[in-house]
Design a protein around this nucleic acid. Structure first.
Lengths: 149, 149
DNA sequence: CAGTATCCAGCTAGATACTG
DNA sequence: CAGTATCTAGCTGGATACTG
């Protein structure tokens, strides 16, 4: 079938593609953190106090536990659909725990697991990088965008 | 206009949303690394020798310079459109340099800048995390997916 | 070889309404 | 309060064809 010539080529390269990805497991994680809501939720649960080092004597056992509505309020721009969907995915992956408290109006709390906290450390490192270098990136971008000069 | 009640509420929360993001610059970087091609290109240019520590005496000045077609071949699954588009975006952000050599069939090479290399260090750290913990994630996922038990 | 331009399918994610 | 379900618009990204 000469009709699938281009497609066959693609299929061939797909094999190399997979081989490359096989040695590059970042792809697996990529699918997880490439979702901006994942990172923002991680950010919210792992570092909900804004850059503020909490006084250790006030809340010594800061559980970093947040209710659904708290997360929704903090991240705000997220829709219910995306928030629930992302939280469930993270729960499924063992990055956070979901606790249902059968009160009259049901209460649900979320908390990062150790695994989730370790990933949060990664994303926080990236955020630190961003704080250090984002100016450079934006400067380059602006310089590259000069109309004509 | 009472017709925009819901929209108005959203607009309100958007403000909080932005405020949260304002203190969380990871959003800026997220838009950059949330693209899987970005990470794969970074991976290709920053670490094209597969985990293999190159002998320092063989290629002491390993320039990590790759031609367009080399990158295309390594990542393969990427389309020309996405590859070019992503490379240009990264060049615009100062993460890599694009060099055009006016040979008879034009030659174009790409190379990470120091800035790009530092971001690559971040993504490599994440890849290391993935290698260490992805099994846990997959185990949790499988356990969570048990049909009925 | 490297890139541009166009067309289009598929997924993402937002809005809305309803439930326990 | 916390979620589920549905509909849909918009963006992403892939295929294809053409250029210098």
């Amino acid at each position: 079938m000469a009709t699938t010539t281009k497609a066959a080529e693609r299929a061939q390269t797909q094999l190399e593609y997979n081989a490359f990805l096989a040695v590059c497991p970042s792809r697996q994680l990529l699918d997880r953190i490439s979702d901006k809501w994942v990172v923002l939720i991680l950010c919210a649960l792992g570092d909900n106090r804004t850059e503020e080092p909490a006084p250790p004597d006030q809340s010594p056992a800061s559980p970093r536990t947040m209710r659904y509505s708290e997360i929704a309020r903090l991240i705000a721009g997220v829709s219910q659909k995306m928030l629930t969907q992302t939280l469930r995915a993270l729960e499924r992956d063992g990055l956070l725990t979901r606790t249902v408290i059968p009160t009259v109006p049901v209460t649900v709390t979320y908390q990062l697991t150790d695994l989730g906290l370790s990933l949060h450390a990664m994303t926080r490192a990236i955020r630190d990088w961003a704080q250090d270098h984002m100016d450079d990136v934006l400067a380059h971008r602006a310089e590259h965008d000069v109309p004509a000069g």
